[in-house]
């Protein structure tokens, strides 16, 4: 694989020089982008889920329309419309906020389905038990249904979270210097795309591994009090 010792040394040199800049880009942009959009996206998702569940027709329709649009079109296209398209309407967004908006909407649309399914999965008997002790609908929702729905939705939401870490690499296309973008830059001037992109992949792997441990830990914490 390596013609000679000199080439081997060159690659090791490039990889060790580039490791921390790429990791730093990940810590500076990839991680914050992931965390911010996940939190905002979940809040959005929760309201969309409620809007889909309530019996107020208008809200049902709006929520379904929203989910239909954003699940039915590629995230990359949504990002391009936001960043490259909107300026022609006089709305210019900086790359990072544009990425935050696009990913938040995406997380919101997908996770709303997870949250909605989790709420609907709680047996009818739980509502009835709550009503039977005199709770109102919103008390039953807050005190009895949501806490159980959170436990149900944790594993699938954890998976969305891991996907999101990787999806943030799309932000590179609108010049956010996150992990992948940094790798691209370095690959371009070192002419070592194979090794640099393997290194990029490796750093993503570190991130998602750490995050899955976090996910498992969270699930285990909640799992302790879940009945079967």
């Amino acid at each position: 694989m390596f013609a000679d010792q000199e080439r081997f040394d060159r690659i090791v040199g490039i990889l060790s020089d580039s490791f921390f800049p790429i990791l730093k880009a990940g810590i500076q942009f990839t991680i914050p982008l992931t965390l911010i959009t996940f939190v905002l996206g979940l809040i959005l998702a929760f309201f969309i889920a409620l809007a889909r569940i309530t019996n107020i027709k208008v809200l049902n329709v709006i929520a379904r329309f929203f989910v239909w649009i954003f699940r039915g079109t590629p995230l990359l296209v949504q990002i391009f419309i936001l960043f490259y398209g909107l300026p022609s309407l006089g709305i210019t967004l900086n790359p990072f906020p544009a990425a935050v908006i696009a990913f938040t909407i995406n997380v919101g649309a997908y996770s709303s389905e997870i949250i909605r399914a989790a709420i609907l999965s709680i047996p009818k008997g739980q509502w009835e038990a709550a009503y039977s002790i005199g709770m109102t609908k919103s008390q039953a929702m807050r005190r009895i249904i949501i806490p159980q729905a959170i436990r149900v939705s944790l594993p699938p939401l954890g998976n969305s979270f891991i996907s999101l870490v990787k999806d943030t690499s799309l932000a590179a296309t609108i010049t956010v210097t996150e992990l992948f973008q940094k790798g691209q830059q370095i690959a371009a001037y070192t002419y070592e795309p194979l090794w640099i992109y393997i290194e990029v992949a490796f750093i993503y792997l570190i991130f998602s591994t750490v995050l899955s441990y976090l996910q498992n830990w969270l699930e285990a914490r909640f799992e302790r009090s879940v009945a079967k």
């Binding site: 047996p123 008997g125 739980q126 009835e128 038990a129 709550a130 039977s132 009895i144 806490p147 159980q148 436990r151 009090s225 879940v226 009945a227």
Partner: peptide
């Protein structure tokens, strides 16, 4: 009091 108990599992 329900046939299936319906306790709050959480």
């Amino acid at each position: 009091v329900f046939q299936g108990y319906n306790l709050f599992p959480h």
